[in-house]
């Protein structure tokens, strides 16, 4: 189908963008970035925004830089940017590993990192990364700027802490120390399709024991999050099969899985056990 009519706004600066949003957001105005989720939704007429504020012409939103130990990802940075390491050390490698799983090449050429975060699909790889690494979301509006930590950002399926008139201008990811190990595992039925469950884990080793473990899952629950029970099962233990199995079991037990006609809650729980285990094994090798 064809999208319903809307009025088009093309601001050139962040100030102009938030001023326009302040005006049109109350009249069902939406931000258009890469458009790889919003435009299909409009084609189905599930979304019929009256205004689109196209931020692609805002040059200041395309920055991708490391500042103060954080990778700052501007609102128009495309998925494809991460196909080469964008930061030194494990973070650049982690992002490069994860991006391969996002849709397909033509989608990655247009879709944006921040757009995925703002859209907050439970199957979004970037939302998982944000939750796992403790990203900071920078929200700007005509009222000013605020920084929202990942743990307070995702509030439900496609629902976030962003308020009317707020533009997600940037997401910041902390750099990972050189000895940080990571593992990612995603399960879906077709290449490039939405994930049914995925896990991202990171940890460091000290005296052959796991320290600073992070275990995050998404796709299986309404929102991406770290699973404290699984992290406890890893902390201070040796990185061996027994420890990993215990952590995977703990994650499977801890979650409140989504349930739909294609994928039952039990199946998702089983998948979570498997993807956590595989992510841990990948991190260890």
């Amino acid at each position: 189908m064809k999208p319903a009519p809307f009025q088009y706004h093309a601001p050139r600066t962040i100030e102009e963008a938030v001023a326009t949003l302040a005006r049109v957001a109350p009249d069902d105005g939406r931000v258009l970035a890469g458009g790889q989720s919003l435009v299909p939704t409009m084609a189905f007429r599930l979304a019929r925004p009256r205004h689109l504020v196209d931020i692609n012409g805002v040059a200041a939103l395309s920055r991708l830089v490391v500042e103060n130990g954080k990778l700052c990802i501007g609102a128009t940075v495309r998925h494809a940017a991460f196909e080469r390491p964008v930061a030194k050390g494990p973070l650049g490698e982690l992002l490069r590993e994860v991006v391969r799983h996002i849709a397909h090449k033509p989608i990655r050429a247009r879709g944006t990192f921040c757009g995925s975060i703002a859209h907050a699909d439970p199957a979004s790889e970037w939302c998982l990364v944000a939750a796992a690494l403790g990203a900071e979301m920078v929200a700007r509006s005509a009222r000013g700027e605020r920084v929202i930590p990942a743990k307070d950002f995702f509030s439900g399926i496609m629902t976030t802490a962003l308020q009317e008139g707020e533009l997600l201008t940037e997401v910041r990811l902390p750099l990972l120390s050189a000895d940080t190990r990571f593992g990612f595992c995603e399960f879906n039925r077709r290449a490039g399709d939405f994930a049914i469950a995925m896990a991202l884990v990171t940890f460091r080793l000290k005296n052959s024991a796991i320290i600073e473990p992070r275990v995050a899952i998404s796709g299986a629950e309404a929102t991406p999050r770290r699973i404290a029970q699984a992290e406890t099962a890893l902390d201070s233990h040796a990185p061996d099969a027994k420890t990993f199995a215990a952590a995977a079991d703990a994650a499977a037990k801890a979650i409140d899985p989504l349930d739909d006609e294609n994928t039952s809650a039990d199946y998702r729980r089983g998948l979570v056990r498997t993807v956590v285990l595989r992510a841990l094994e990948r991190a260890a090798t």
């Binding site: 088009y8 093309a10 458009g35 790889q36 435009v39 299909p40 084609a43 196209d54 692609n56 494809a80 090449k105 033509p106 989608i107 050429a109 247009r110």
Partner: peptide, 18 residues
């Protein structure tokens, strides 16, 4: 799929004005 500024993209997911 077409090529815009050197990148293959879906032309159904862009508005012409863009």
């Amino acid at each position: 799929t077409i090529i815009i500024d050197g990148e293959a993209v879906r032309s159904c997911l862009m508005f012409a004005v863009q």
